[in-house]
């Protein structure tokens, strides 16, 4: 159990959660006519951008997978383009899944797609930052007992939390309360965001509590 890794990760997570909170607060205070419910689409853009930026910053600053060998510039570039392609694919995949879940196919495409972008920035962007565009590593991390480091565990927890949050967020939609937040996709994106933040906060705590049980093998 590496205490420093855990500490690094906790600070990273707190920054991530902070970014989400900022994405809600700053535009409300600085931009006229911005509200979480009223201009939900622009909030979706801002929030996903913030989360992606923070993830990239954390990747550069904390270097969670520092053990990888030095790579050439072209290698890095190809990795970057690959990551971008992966991200776009994941956006479309999420969009497809959301439509399969019953979101309208033609109406409110923008809402659905931006929600998909938000979900991929919560899940895929973190995976890309921590694991790189390496599909087999992803499969490993997201299978039972596949986590090999603190980062893998945090990744598991935040991803599952945000997806489950979005899943639970769909439940209030059929209720006949006629509230503004029941409109598609506000309740779902709210659920996903809350789930993501909760995941960020829970992950270090959970790992800390279970540190005795978790013994990672060296890579």
């Amino acid at each position: 159990m590496d205490e420093t890794e855990l500490r690094k990760m906790s600070t990273g997570h707190i920054f991530g959660a902070f970014a989400v909170v900022l994405s809600v607060c700053v535009p409300v205070l600085s931009v006229d006519g911005f509200s979480f419910l009223g201009t939900h689409l622009s909030w979706l853009c801002i929030c996903s951008l913030c989360v992606i930026l923070v993830n990239i910053l954390l990747l550069l600053l904390l270097k969670p997978n520092a053990s990888s060998k030095k790579t050439s510039l072209s290698n890095k570039l190809s990795k970057l383009t690959k990551s971008c392609i992966y991200f776009v694919i994941s956006c479309f995949l999420f969009h497809g899944i959301i439509v399969l879940y019953g979101a309208p196919l033609v109406e409110s495409v923008a809402e659905t797609f931006l929600f998909a972008v938000l979900l991929s920035s919560f899940t895929t962007s973190r995976c890309l930052c921590l694991l790189g565009p390496n599909f087999s590593a992803w499969v490993r991390v997201f299978s039972k007992d596949g986590a090999l480091s603190v980062w893998d565990h945090s990744l598991q927890i935040t991803t599952v939390c945000s997806v489950v949050g979005a899943w639970l967020g769909a439940f209030p939609i059929p209720l006949d309360w006629d509230r503004p937040w029941q409109v598609w996709p506000i309740s779902c994106s709210l659920g996903a965001t809350l789930g993501y933040v909760a995941g960020l906060l829970i992950a270090p705590l959970w790992i800390y509590c279970n540190r005795k049980r978790l013994t990672y093998k060296s890579r």
Binding site: Y101, G102, W167
Partner: peptide, 19 residues
């Protein structure tokens, strides 16, 4: 327990089978 969920029970089942 909620009347809306009874009215819209199909949504529950579609959601569950999808998942």
């Amino acid at each position: 327990g909620a009347s809306s969920f009874i009215e819209e029970e199909h949504q529950t089942w579609y959601f569950l089978t999808n998942t």
